[in-house]
């Protein structure tokens, strides 16, 4: 069964579908601009060797997000 979790909890190699953004203001706008709108499929690729940030595959591009930002994106695991 699929569960709701945050992007930063998505294990590298697994994917999720964006459900909602828990960010406000500028951060929210930036995340939207990256294509993180509800329904977007995101694949967690890999973590930096120091544990953070994590690289995600979002709408055809690889984008690294810090844990602080990833926490604000809720996804449904796929």
């Amino acid at each position: 069964m699929s569960t709701i979790t945050s992007l930063s909890n998505l294990r590298p190699g697994s994917s999720g579908e964006v459900v909602s953004l828990q960010a406000w203001g500028l951060t929210r706008r930036r995340l939207l601009d990256l294509g993180l709108v509800p329904g977007t499929r995101v694949v967690a690729l890999r973590r930096s060797p120091s544990g953070d940030p994590t690289a995600f595959f979002i709408r055809g591009a690889t984008i690294a997000l810090r844990r602080e930002e990833g926490r604000q994106v809720l996804v449904r695991t796929v």
Partner: peptide
Amino acid sequence: ATCLERNLN
């Protein structure tokens, strides 16, 4: 061209 959807935005 390899990443059309994102660029179309």
